[in-house]
Design a protein around this nucleic acid. Structure first.
Lengths: 277, 277
DNA sequence: TATGACTAGTCGACTAGTCAAGTTGGGGAT
DNA sequence: ATCCCCAACTTGACTAGTCGACTAGTCATA
């Protein structure tokens, strides 16, 4: 197999196995070739094979069992390639047209900054996001000035009005690409203004994704509250248990019951656990 | 440091670094000791150190930068240890008392099985989950008979009425522990019956987590729809970008816009994209 | 003041092996 | 026929090294 330059072997091997699975050569529950077989087959060391398989496991495609072998996991209910992150990228990958309309851009106030746990000064940016021209979500972002200064579009430098403008691409170009993020998903009733923007009849439930994104140096790049029409948005997760010798299994997801204790007092503000510990 | 038997070095090393971070020895943005330093310090090979650090990266605690070093990521907004999975485990780890009340247990019907993508015959189990005695969620599970037969409690063998009964523990004991799962999070308005069960005033938004769990052989163990009071539940995620030489970054989360296309026709059934592709 | 070459140090990828622990299936004893 | 033990095979953990790519300095030169 002619390896493209720069792509590590373990990744190309992982992708080859993956494409074989998709091609139906192996199917759900089948045992994949053993590590030593794959070594011989592809002329690489076992360490490389293991790294390739770990990729597959991390993506929920394969399951390893000590002493037994590596098996194909069942097909995911949302096998949509596992990559990428941004709203628009996802939409585009599904053959839809993602656009946006700027509703407001202004310096962020004090209350907002506190709510978003964002430093000041910062830029407040409200956007309506549309998929195939239908309102689908509205995003309220706070971007620290420190970051905004590096992004020409946020300096009135144009480009922002382009309905296909991508904030994440802009961050990337500015050298502060997002490397890490945290999200909190909640639901609530749509407020009137939201319902009007999203063109939904009240009462209706909306999904709210609150996300804080960080660059490689660990600095906050964007804090955003994304309000989605609940009928047009789902949040899909694939969880894999990493079993290690000591029953020390860990999953990535974290539940939370922050507000439960406040309930009887009527102080059920829902997101008031947003702050760190 | 006296390593407990059976715990691999890379895990105990990872935990040691982690506890040093928590102790404040290193803080957000600081550079951790280089890999070779850690090798010398702990008398292990570099491969082991790398595995330890990869753990931290996977948990969103550290960030590696080629040529530069390994750095402490900022503290998470939900730094709650990263482990574990089940509803009750989470609650217990927060010092709360998680109980449940069985509302219904019966053979599953055809429509239900189709909706949950679960084979027949299967057991339908409805439970009200309480935290500190307050209704917090209600779970509707479908468990294939194939699995249920191996779980004594589901055979009327008692134990199910125990308010602290754990279905996942039971699966574990029966040799079909959950290794992989998929979740889809949505929101909707609470139905009257749900509102009554959860003791909330309508109209109200509820978060619905639909989860399918699989054992090591890839067989479905449980399909469950968990309906949560939106003010008492949040769904937290930590995302880490895995950058590899080729700009091939991948995150685990997946958005979805399934129902958007149906909207204009009025056929906005929300979850009808639950089926595979 | 830039610019470019050099360098020491870092992580990324990979190799080739060891030993341990878990699984499976077959053969032999009962 | 059933049970138990063992050998072969699997993944898990680990070592000790190589080479390459990238980073952040320093320092001489244009």
């Amino acid at each position: 197999m002619a390896r493209a330059a720069n792509i590590p072997r373990y990744l190309s091997l992982s992708e080859e196995i993956q494409s074989r699975i998709h091609a139906g050569e192996y199917s759900s529950g089948d045992r994949l070739p053993s590590e030593s077989e794959l070594c011989r087959e592809h002329g690489v060391s076992r360490g490389t094979v293991v790294k390739a398989i770990e990729q597959l496991v991390a993506e929920g495609i394969a399951i390893r069992r000590q002493g037994s072998g590596t098996f194909v996991a069942r097909p995911s209910m949302h096998r949509r390639s596992g990559k990428l992150l941004s709203f628009s990228q996802t939409a585009i990958s599904e053959g839809r047209d993602a656009t946006q309309k700027i509703i407001q851009i202004a310096p962020a106030g004090d209350a907002l900054a506190r709510e978003f746990h964002c430093e000041l000064p910062a830029v407040s940016l409200v956007r309506l996001r549309l998929i195939d021209n239908m309102p689908c979500a509205y995003h309220h972002s706070l971007i620290p000035d420190r970051i905004a200064r590096m992004v020409p579009a946020l300096q009135g430098g144009g480009g922002l009005q382009d309905p296909h403008f991508s904030l994440y691409d802009a961050f990337e170009k500015a050298g502060c690409g997002v490397v890490q993020a945290e999200e909190r998903v909640t639901a609530r009733l749509a407020e009137d203004e939201e319902a009007r923007l999203l063109d939904i009849a009240t009462p209706a439930a909306v999904i709210v994704v609150f996300r804080r994104s960080f660059d490689a140096s660990g600095a906050l790049v964007e804090a955003v509250e994304a309000v989605h029409h609940s009928e047009h948005y789902t949040y899909d997760m694939s969880l894999v248990r990493r079993t290690s010798s000591e029953g020390e299994d860990r999953l990535r997801r974290v539940h939370s019951f922050e507000a439960a204790a406040n309930r009887q007092t009527g102080n059920a503000s829902g997101l008031n656990g947003k702050k760190g510990n």
